[in-house]
Design a protein around this nucleic acid. Structure first.
Length: 274
DNA sequence: AAGTCCCGCAACCGCTGGTAT
DNA sequence: AATACCAGCGGTTGCGGGACT
């Protein structure tokens, strides 16, 4: 037994959305909120698949979308995040307010790939092209998984021998990038000497950020904005984070390589790629 | 002006993970 | 444990418009 189709394909429109369809969708979501995409089309009087409605809303109609050209800063941020996360467009989008995964994916394929090639950097491995050429195993094929090479590939699993010192609270509120950069970049630089991995990423925007008490922890999955993850290891006193601190890692706060709050010793095991 | 090519983007498709029953 | 449903993700496709011949 498989899954039933998400909609009655025979009675749904396909292709570009009309202004009227957009208006109907916007009006419905304004009145009832997001969710229940399967039943939404019928309720909203749309001859569309629920999936299609969701995509249209998320990628085009959402009021918080930024639209417009990407800035140079956004370009660099995408490149850096891609070098660390691979084709995890939704994760990358999560670090770029107002941008969608689809938008970033398209932008990557049409602009950034070319930009990196012009810089002599392989867009898949983020290694210098000449280095890739000298190691035939480092293919530039479809996989986002870093290619094999004499040196270990980038983070399937990474560990840094030097634990990050716990900054004072006022330091992490102001994100002491320099500390992180100095301590985190060396191993990466070793592997990608031409790749500037200086990361300056802000935490997700919060209207009224709740100050963390010294001694509390936040796990990597939560720092990425992944709610209710089974990997969550946060202390219970952090809003929206309900896991228990059971991974044996110390309770001091440090920064992961994305500039996000985490335990003093960052545990990259939670960052395994597919 | 007409035809062709190329590029960018919106949308679709197939699949996976999570959850409820 | 098995099944069904839902939401979401990432790869791919196809259309529209601009550039080029």
């Amino acid at each position: 037994m498989g899954r039933s189709p998400c909609c009655e394909k025979a009675h749904t429109n396909k292709g570009a959305w009309t202004k009227e369809e957009d208006d109907r969708l916007i009006a419905y979501i304004k009145a009832h909120g997001e969710g229940c995409w399967r039943s939404l089309p019928k309720a909203a009087g749309l001859l569309r698949c629920g999936k299609s409605c969701r995509l249209r809303w998320i990628n085009y109609l959402r009021p918080d979308l930024k639209r417009g050209n990407f800035t140079e800063e956004e370009d660099e941020l995408i490149i850096k995040l891609h070098s660390l996360l691979g084709n995890k467009w939704s994760l990358i989008a999560g670090r770029l307010p107002g941008r969608t995964d689809n938008e970033i994916k398209n932008y990557w394929n049409t602009h950034i790939k070319r930009k990196l090639l012009n810089r002599g950097i392989d867009p898949v491995t983020h290694r210098p092209l000449n280095e890739v050429a000298s190691h035939p195993d480092s293919s530039t094929t479809t996989s986002a998984t870093p290619a094999t090479s004499p040196t270990p590939p980038p983070p399937k699993t990474i560990s840094f021998s030097t634990p990050i010192k716990t900054p004072k609270q006022e330091e992490f509120l102001g994100f002491k990038d320099e500390i992180m950069n100095q301590q985190m970049q060396e191993p990466m630089r070793e592997r990608c000497p031409d790749l500037n991995l200086e990361l300056r990423i802000s935490p997700p925007y919060q209207e009224n950020p709740e100050p963390l008490k010294t001694g509390t922890t936040i796990c990597f999955t939560c720092s990425l904005g992944l709610k209710s993850s089974k990997d969550c290891n946060c202390s219970k006193n952090i809003g929206g984070c309900s896991g228990s601190s059971s991974n044996g890692i110390g309770s001091s706060i440090g920064y992961d390589f994305l500039g996000l709050r985490t335990n003093g010793a960052f545990d990259y095991r939670s960052l395994e790629m597919k």
